[in-house]
Design a protein around this nucleic acid. Structure first.
Lengths: 173, 173
DNA sequence: CGACACATGTAACACGTTACATGATTTG
DNA sequence: CAAATCATGTAACGTGTTACATGTGTCG
């Protein structure tokens, strides 16, 4: 839903054509979440099919402009009014991986933890570096980066707590 | 990929039939990530199509047992050996929502933040309560819950930092 | 001219998800 | 017996994603 509703929101600011949407989306989130240009068009087609946007003529340069319909506007404000629920979120691959790794024989969970921690900490450094390079005024991008940073930190902390639990378990044995 | 690889991992412990996989998956993650039984069968069919599992006769009760193939085992150990990359993860709906909300007229970002924080904190309480109810020995489930808790905490912190950034911006104006 | 940015689109596939059909077995 | 649990599957759809085809305009 992210792409669908994200594009919808951008169109609420201002009717646009596909390529413009792509550019704007990239500006907004930096390259935090790369969006393939092709997906803009597929998504746009589906949005039109579902009556959330409509073709609104061209802009004089032959670009096909899309605009929100009333239904689209309704859907959008619904989105903003409703919190993102935990159940809406995709399964967490890492959590599942570790949960199942515990019982698969021949898998050294400690090693999985170790590998992941290394990767996560590297990501964290990387993100911090990226953040330092982002202009102070670019709020949207900063928020997006912050989000990733907080998540990576949480992940690191979680990995530590997993390690601790494993240790405790070994002691009990 | 989570379901696909998760089931693959469970089959590595022991060949099983569909319903059993469903039960086991649920045991492992509690009801942290509910898995529709239908999806087990669709996923199993796709895994077989891709040569990662194979039908391995029945268990004497007429249940169709599935087992890993060598390819499946290879894929699985590949999974465990490789850290989950940030780029593998799905787009974060909440982050995108707030990033785009900043510029959509008629949307009160503060209110969006407020609504989300309420929901997030409620989730956090809920998760903590759930965690208290989980048996100490159920490592896999505990890890899964912890993961959600750390994430929710990170989200709450992030929402705070968003609020701060907004305040700073308003002061600058 | 050639490379590059601008611009639009489609076919095809992966994965997740659910509603539905269907039947066997168990148990209150 | 009726309800619940066990058990298997399929059709259909939503969303994400990419590889590819195709063309225009611009600038070094």
């Amino acid at each position: 839903m992210s792409v669908k509703l994200g594009l919808l929101a951008l169109l609420d600011e201002q009717p646009m054509y596909g390529y413009q949407l792509h550019t704007t989306f990239k500006e907004r989130t930096g390259d935090t979440w790369p969006l393939n240009i092709g997906q803009v068009y597929t998504t746009l087609a589906r949005l039109e099919r579902d009556g959330l946007v409509e073709a609104a003529g061209d802009d004089g340069d032959g670009h096909q402009i899309y605009a929100l319909t009333d239904t689209g506007r309704a859907e959008l404000s619904q989105w903003f009014a409703t919190p993102v629920a935990r159940s809406d979120r995709p399964r967490d691959e890492l959590a599942i991986k570790l949960s199942v790794a515990l019982t698969v024989s021949g898998v050294d969970v400690r090693e999985v933890l170790q590998t992941q921690r290394t990767a996560t900490l590297r990501d964290l450094q990387d993100l911090t570096r990226q953040k330092a390079a982002v202009d102070e005024g670019d709020l949207a991008w900063l928020l997006a980066l912050d989000s990733l940073i907080f998540q990576a930190e949480a992940e690191a902390r979680w990995l530590d707590s997993c390690e601790e639990r494993l240790l405790k378990k070994e002691v009990r044995r």
